[in-house]
Amino acid sequence: MHKVVGIGDWKSSDNVAETVVTYALATCVAVTAYCPVRKAAGMIHILLPAPHTKSDELQRPSRFATTGVPLLIRHMKERYGCKNETLVVNVYGGATSMKRRNPFMIGDRNVEQVQQELRKIGITPRCTDVGGGISRTLEMSVATGEIRLKTLPLTS
């Protein structure tokens, strides 16, 4: 059974029969968190580095790196009893737009902000697969924490 994480969304599970999946990350960034001790998995699909308004932040904190990353990690600790030292955290996505002009550099900014938020919490990602001109789809097993990564080239 799949738990699908949409854009600006997040999910977690401790049901070992489930997988947590997100599709077609381009400039967006996914952060995965897995606790092998508790057999608990969480994933967030970050849309932007930070909210533009307080209303944005309050309505959908999972859309933004500044609010979503702390939300996911706090949830893994409070709901499942995970600790920083037992969490296996990975970062994926943040592709570079294939358009000639890319003044906003959203992919790069998303990756940078996610990494900054993880540093604030005291977590170093085990794996990062970011940048480039590819779209990434992730499927994470709740039973093992294993992540299957599928990639496709981005088109202009």
Rank of each mutant, 00 (worst) to 15 (best):
L71M: 15
V21Y: 09
V16G: 01
R60F: 07
H52M: 15
I121H: 10
L25P: 02
T27I: 02
D108E: 06
I134V: 14
R60S: 12
I121D: 10
R101K: 04
V91G: 10
R136M: 13
K150P: 01
E139M: 13
C82R: 03
E139R: 13
G42I: 12
C35G: 10
R38G: 03
W10R: 11
G132Y: 05
V130Y: 01
V37L: 11
T66C: 09
V69I: 15
R79E: 13
T137E: 03
T144E: 02
S141R: 05
Y34L: 11
S13F: 09
G81Q: 07
G131F: 02
S97G: 00
S97D: 00
D56L: 04
A33F: 12
V130D: 01
N84W: 06
M105H: 02
G122S: 11
Q116C: 07
G94M: 01
A41K: 06
L58F: 02
V88T: 14
G132S: 04
L149H: 08
Q115M: 15
N102V: 01
D14K: 14
L72D: 09
E78Y: 03
Q59V: 03
L152F: 08
K3D: 12
K99G: 00
V16D: 06
I134R: 12
I121S: 09
V21G: 02
T67M: 06
G94Q: 02
E18C: 07
V21Q: 14
A33M: 12
N84Y: 06
P125E: 09
E78C: 03
K11P: 06
R63W: 04
P153E: 05
G94Y: 00
V130I: 15
T96K: 00
V130W: 02
L71Y: 08
S12Q: 11
